[in-house]
Amino acid sequence: MGLINQIDVSVKRMLLEDSRKELFFKVLYLFVLIKLWLSWSTLELIIEFVPARVYSLVGLVLHAPLQLLNFGVGAFVVVFSLILLISIVVHLNYISAFLIFWFSVCLSKFLFPVLNGADLVLNLFLLIGLVTPTFPVLKLRGITEYQKVISAFGVLFVKVEIALIYFLSGYDKLITPSWRNGNAIFSVANLDYFSNPNFSMQLSGISVLVVAWLVILFEISFAFFIWFKKFRNYWLIAGVVFHLGIIVFMGLLDFGLVMIISYLIFLPAKKLDSN
């Protein structure tokens, strides 16, 4: 009974909490739009050099947007761009959320040779985005209130997923000896494809150990401290610095940007309005 009461209180508090979900999803849509345009030439190369996948009948239906590629990469890019542009302009709604998720998953399926974790995270947010709109308002039999509850849970779901992503990443590092002794940072610094040649650094034994433990502690602590208003801003700032570091030193532009964009969901609406 105590748990039920606790849930009731939490649900009510959650429904009252204001969040900038509209801003979060629209920035996410803008990110997808830029990614789409930048991927244009890569899509053409993939069509030219990677053997086409053979889909079953169900697969064909699920990946129907990819049929546009039969008319050229441009057809897919133009249609998806229009959907994204319209979605950015209009109110967050179920139809555009669904179309964007559908097209984005199809794009990811097609761009698989160049995908990384950013795309998984992006598509997860877009999936949750299916339930977060409250428009069009369904006035049938008081469904409106249900829409609000589901939407509020959707926003909470995004926040929980961000926390879980950090916790998973931090915990995995914590149980890995090469992260605990700093060798992982040494490895990253010596990976040809993940180390910026403009910042050639010789890291000492102590410095790699310090950096490794800072990363582990940041990732694990983020999952907890982000839930406390008192600490939230400090951890968000630390997160932005952390991901900017990944972008600058490792060149993981898309991953860093998706994670930084995700922080928008933690910003309260009032704070942004006062700016």
Binding site: N116, G117, L120, V121, N123, L124, L127, E161, L164, I165, L168, S169, Y171, D172, K173, T176, A184, V188, F255
Partner: peptide, 9 residues
């Protein structure tokens, strides 16, 4: 799909 990561294994 629901628990992406860990990324730098």
């Amino acid at each position: 799909y629901l628990l992406p990561g860990p990324f730098f294994t």
